[in-house]
């Protein structure tokens, strides 16, 4: 067992982990952040995506020990003082979700794009989110939501 420190949604957490344990396991099963979803555990579906040190990562592909000292954002951390983030408002207004099981991953990917690539073209948005699988929406309303969130956060000029 190794003790690691994570800053998760702004809060410092110390966790004892085994050297083979994934960040996904720590987030879901030790810190009980159940917005982080799981499906394939092999980096194919992308629905366990979180933001780590301002990068999008598939948390099943990150060893917990690699994440030592890292800053992690999950969907639980997007709502502050009862106010939802622009990306969440956009997903709601643009019907960017259906069954919801992939939604937290897409919301975080969208949040990252809003903050880091506000001038992203539609093709760039599609490329970035292609690491995450959605079986319900056909992606269009997800892409629409991300474009709309960029507008909400940065105004028309984007």
């Amino acid at each position: 067992m190794v003790r690691i420190t994570l800053t998760v949604n702004g809060e410092k957490k110390e966790v004892d982990v085994s050297i083979s344990e994934s960040l996904l396991h720590v987030l879901r099963d030790k810190l009980h952040l159940r917005s982080v979803k799981a499906n394939c555990y092999r980096g194919e579906c992308g629905i366990c995506t979180v933001i780590m040190n301002n990068r999008l990562v598939k948390s099943c592909q990150v060893l917990a020990v690699e994440a030592d000292g890292a800053e992690i954002i999950t969907v639980e951390g997007l709502t502050r003082d009862g106010k939802i983030a622009p990306i969440q408002r956009a997903f709601i207004e643009k019907f960017g979700f259906q069954c919801g099981f992939c939604t937290p991953a897409f919301v975080l990917a969208g949040h990252w794009i809003v903050n880091n690539m506000p001038k992203a073209s539609e093709d760039e948005i599609r490329e970035i989110i292609s690491g995450i699988v959605c079986r319900c929406t056909g992606y269009k309303q997800i892409v629409d939501a991300i474009k709309y969130a960029i507008m909400l956060a940065h105004g028309e000029s984007g």
Binding site: R34, I92, G100, V107
Partner: peptide, 12 residues
């Protein structure tokens, strides 16, 4: 808007 917004808020 959909009523199941808990999916976007992370506590579905």
């Amino acid at each position: 808007p959909r009523v199941d917004v808990d999916k976007v808020l992370g506590d579905a």
